[in-house]
Amino acid sequence: MGLKVNNISKSFKKVNALEQVTFHIKPGELFGLIGPDGAGKTTLFRILTTLLIADKGSATVAGYDVLKDYKSIRNNVGYMPGKFSLYQDLTIEENLTFFATIFGTTIEENYNLIEDIYVQIEPFKNRRAGKLSGGMKQKLALCCALIHKPKVLFLDEPTTGVDPVSRKEFWDMLKRLQTKGITMLVSTPYMDEAALCDRIALIQEGKILEIDTPKSIVKHYPKPIYNVTANNTYKVITSLNMYPFNHSVYPFGEHVHYTDKRDSFNIKELHNYLEQNGLKNITIQKTKATIEDTFMELAR
């Protein structure tokens, strides 16, 4: 059970979409695939949901081989593609009934699984899907993907383009589903959502950079990171970029994250340097690496 991906490679024309991707997901795990657009997340989802065939490598989903047992996989997985993929001209209820029917089940049969999500949209059940807000569409899509009680649930960027409130609600729903024993693979470009997964894989340009729990993955960060601020962020960035000892300089919201090449780094020295560059109200503080720092360090 769970999911096993071994050395999967896939290319389109000249572009390598996936290169030697390997990871295993334990049954009941909530696994995150974190990476920007074009990293190969959707291609990987399509291979695992039997929509595409990999050039190389093998994979099993819930114990079934993606190539040989594709029919069994289609009976046992739920898939929510990145694009909203329901019938806009059908109502909430009609969409759900339709998907229940083609999976050979009924809404009543697995109602307990979707109940706490469905009650939120049930008041609008006669409204057409095309007229729903982003958050409601997403809840409906999740209901449709769950209606046949899948063993594994694939969610491709479910929170892209959704406002923060709906995003939070959505992750709460996933956490509750997890208690029902469903294995989940979720992809997202948001680094802050990574923390909500059991384990994450960082992916860029078709390659897995690192796989670990969100807590441990930041421990791989090799250097101390300093938060630098001053009265003019642009000047901070340009000054730090010119500083001969910099290892990395990344704006991070109102701060700039700075790492130094040397093992013995002196805050005072940098402070002076920035002052010489005409900056005022300078603060330099040690800070903890985030998943995004780790991602950038690995992707360099």
Binding site: T50, R74, N75, K83, S85, Y87, F99, I102, F103
Partner: peptide, 13 residues
């Protein structure tokens, strides 16, 4: 175009 074909393909129909 809607993307629903993907879901139909990944179903037992």
């Amino acid at each position: 175009e809607l993307g629903t074909m993907e879901i139909l393909l990944v179903s037992p129909i």
